[in-house]
């Protein structure tokens, strides 16, 4: 590392103040910088080098011809995507699903973490926490299968609604229920796991604050509102900013498992389309172009929400 810096210095020649100080820093903390190397290599090899593959989004990529040998087509695939109005549907489905996810699923782990935090019996709390983590480790394929068994035409929920309402609700094959089913499954599977980070933040709250508040006669709800929530506010904001980065990510495995001809109108999202084009139809360039577009939008969303967080006086991401 130090040698590299020296080389850089030699190249730049002028030997500015900046480089000299960096070099001195490196020498002083050389062991710390050594620790950094494996992580750096990981990021270069697995995150930065593959990025060069983005060029296939501008080519008519045929695996046999390779990245360098394929024909350069410029923005053709981007034009293709916008040529027919289907993309509006995909974008709409993606955004609605994401919005529902943020509104309905995002607060769920926070509420659950607050509830857990209020529990007095430590032993029971630990047991409950462990049980709540279990769904996270169940494969989405199994979750969907369980849903089919319960909500499908011969399932208990289906039969029960039929008896109560007098007519059945086609949970698994209707565009009206599709999104709710997806959100419901996500909440069931991930809420428990999502509490971890908030519970960790809650352990940092100074207990003296609670005691002082109690002396002043604050009830449980007041303490929650004036002490607990402000304490984890920055964590919530941080999580929300990170979540903004994946607004366009709906994942495809979950949706493909739940999709069928009757609900395709709402189940077709950008991620599903990318999967269909790339892996199922072998249109690697087309899929990459859409993926690239998605990434650009996601990065801008993160930057924008970080800015907003700063404006609201929060620390934000950086």
């Amino acid at each position: 590392m130090a040698k590299k810096q020296a080389e850089a210095k030699a190249i730049h020649g002028t030997g500015s103040e900046y480089w000299r100080r960096l070099l001195a820093d490196c020498k002083r903390d050389k062991w710390l910088y050594l620790l950094l190397i494996p992580g750096l290599i990981y990021f270069i090899v697995f995150k930065y080098l593959p990025m060069f593959g983005i060029v296939i989004a501008f080519e008519n990529y045929v695996p046999y011809s390779g990245v360098l040998g394929s024909q350069w087509v410029g923005l053709k695939w981007f034009e293709y995507f916008f040529k027919f109005p289907a993309w509006i549907d995909y974008l709409k489905n993606t955004l609605i699903l994401s919005l529902m996810n943020i509104v309905l699923f995002f607060p769920a782990p926070i509420i659950l973490a607050l509830l857990l935090n209020e529990m007095m019996n430590l032993r029971y709390k630990k047991l409950l926490q462990t049980l709540l983590y279990v769904p996270h480790f169940i494969s989405i394929v199994i979750v969907v299968s369980i849903t089919f068994v319960m909500f499908g035409p011969s399932g208990i929920v289906y039969k029960l609604t039929e008896r109560v309402l007098g007519h059945p609700i086609n949970y698994m094959g209707s565009p009206d229920t599709f999104r709710w089913m997806i959100i419901g499954q996500t909440i069931w599977k991930e809420t428990g796991w999502g509490t971890i980070i908030f519970l960790a933040a809650l352990t940092n709250v100074d207990t003296q604050l609670y005691e002082a508040a109690m002396v002043d006669g604050a009830g449980r709800l007041r303490r929650l509102w004036h002490i607990t929530l402000p304490a984890i506010r920055s964590t919530i904001v941080l999580m929300l900013i990170l979540r903004m980065g994946s607004v366009l990510d709906t994942g495809y495995d979950h949706l493909i498992l739940m999709a069928n001809p009757l609900n395709r109108r709402v189940s077709q999202t950008l991620d599903v389309f990318v999967y269909q084009q790339g892996i199922q139809s072998g249109q690697f360039s087309y899929a990459s172009a859409i993926g690239l577009m998605k990434s650009i939008i996601s990065v801008s969303l993160v930057l924008a929400s970080n800015k907003i967080a700063h404006m609201l006086g929060e620390q934000g991401l950086y």
Binding site: F46, P50, M51, G53, V274, G278, I279, F284, A287, S288, G291, S295
Partner: peptide
């Protein structure tokens, strides 16, 4: 990006 990694 995920796709590329899987291709590799």
């Amino acid at each position: 990006m995920k796709k590329l990694v899987s291709l590799f």
